[in-house]
Design a protein around this nucleic acid. Sequence first.
DNA 1: TCCGCAAGCCAAAGCCCTTTGAAAATTTGA
DNA 2: TCAAATTTTCAAAGGGCTTTGGCTTGCGGA
Lengths: 340, 340
Amino acid sequence: MNLKELSNKLNLSQTTVSRALNGYPEVGEKTRARVIEAARKYNYHPSYSAKRLAMGKSHAVAHVVPQSPQHSMINPHFSDFIAGAGSTYAKFGFEMLISVVPYDEQEKCYRELARSKRVDGVIVHGPYKEDPRIGLLQSLQLPFVVHGRTEESNIDYSWLDVNNRSSFKRATNFLLDLGHERIALLNGIEEMDFAYRRRLGYEAALTQRGIEVDSGLIFSSDMIEPYGYDVTKSLLQRENAPTGLVTSSVLTALGVVRAAQECGLQIGKDLSVVTFDDELSFLQYPGVPLFTSVRSSIMNAGRRLAEILLDQIDNPDKPPVQELWETDLVVGQSTGPRRV
Amino acid sequence: MNLKELSNKLNLSQTTVSRALNGYPEVGEKTRARVIEAARKYNYHPSYSAKRLAMGKSHAVAHVVPQSPQHSMINPHFSDFIAGAGSTYAKFGFEMLISVVPYDEQEKCYRELARSKRVDGVIVHGPYKEDPRIGLLQSLQLPFVVHGRTEESNIDYSWLDVNNRSSFKRATNFLLDLGHERIALLNGIEEMDFAYRRRLGYEAALTQRGIEVDSGLIFSSDMIEPYGYDVTKSLLQRENAPTGLVTSSVLTALGVVRAAQECGLQIGKDLSVVTFDDELSFLQYPGVPLFTSVRSSIMNAGRRLAEILLDQIDNPDKPPVQELWETDLVVGQSTGPRRV
DNA sequence: TCCGCAAGCCAAAGCCCTTTGAAAATTTGA
DNA sequence: TCAAATTTTCAAAGGGCTTTGGCTTGCGGA
């Protein structure tokens, strides 16, 4: 059943039927009711392809995911984000398109997306301190929003970020308050803006207390379990091992726990850990949380960012939206006063 | 630049230009060369929307992801799978569309996808022992392939599965050979076919050695870290605690390790663990693996399944493809002989 | 009674490609 | 050399929707 057939059945023109269905005002209310009823009865649904061709809109959004053998963008953090964004898209009838491309083909991919009008907008993941994608997308006139932000966040584009700096300052302070002085940072990859800011927060907390930053206690890597394990293992073998750790992800923190326990240390007693917690859905469970953490749901971020993007697509002239989310500090079992 | 403009520039008809570009034989070689050259020069690319409308093909594949508050399909296993499938799609110029929908709207979603011709095919995730989606998709005439299979795998559809039964039999046997007799199974959700088969394998191994299956040692849940932790914690408090465990995912196994260490037990000495390992990309690291495991890359499965689907789309008349992958047994540090 | 103005509806053009059926140009074969 | 076969090209008909511009109604005001 297509528009033509439906309008024949109704003895109306395609114009009127189309307008009735799409809520345009120039059609009488009884007519509209009749049309809607008929559409339901005959199970009419407009063809997406035709609609897109006619309107020059794709009703789709892309996530371009750079993939390299070294760094996998497709990780649990990403998938939770996608789950959130996906639910927004579903709600508004948008499609989500995930393009997995090699690092050096990203630009090509964006250009292609813009040119082909295959999508109405994109979400940019994991921005670097300075990120060429921002300028590229602006020049391509392709609506976009950024998960995170670049160093010069005053540039005019939409982003949503958690307050990484304050979160890590707070996390570090929490350990300092407990008496810890040698505190390690297991950061993400520091070329990325979020990790850079996290480090700043960590350093600020230390400096404020007059504790010198020890670069030997700062690590940077993909936020996975073995990373936490390996670093902790080697840290604990040092003479002057840290008594507190701040980590960038629960995954990493799990590695820390494994290493500590293997060394016979009790988490929360012999070693304290505060982690950033994205509230990954597959790690949630009821009860007192294992980890003391600063937390913010990455799934909610996905949901919200998608909303911002869709809004941006509908209203290209609205000013950019920039949201900075604060995190919650949740005290779990992984922290305790420094043992003397 | 659209087709019309390009053909005007060339003083050719749209027909000829279109055919030249799409490799049809009824166009002279010099003409074709001329057309291709011009297309490059003017940076002409056909419009996807128009192409789709004209051909009734979408060059896209959907993954319908049921989402509920209880079970999150979007987990690290899924995202690795997607990464694999995505790379295949990218290679062949297909789009990947992820539809996150509530459980009870799946059928509607599939019907909608089929009706609207928004995609040329779908990949079915996480089949149950009996799965209504199979019949639905067959009746909708929408090409599909299944990751895993249903109990009656002789039905005529394409699937790719790992040999869950033999893998778990093997894993269990490995523990039995080490002298373990009380072996727990931390399975996935047993309504799902893969978990059902895993249990069969586990039980078969025990029975073959004349060990009675103790249903008190069998657990079933989403394969996450806290699950492994909780179950292990409670198991170790029993009088007659198991000395060996078989788990369905490395995530769960990590929880097992955490619980065991917390109880002062050493993994590989006091407690042995064999896990199924999907080779999740974010958990890979060099060196002797922590876990003894039966393994098969879920990312490769995604890659291959996408290939099968695309092939199926191109050649609808080819018979279904059914692949059963065997797993590798890799010995790590998590297993050792039973202590007396 | 007639005009003007909304409100309601319509025909047709436009979006941009593929594909059919046929014509024109070229080559082949006797 | 000319008809037949083949190659090359084309005009036009889809595909299914939106949207422009214009054409009817029906009604209130003059």
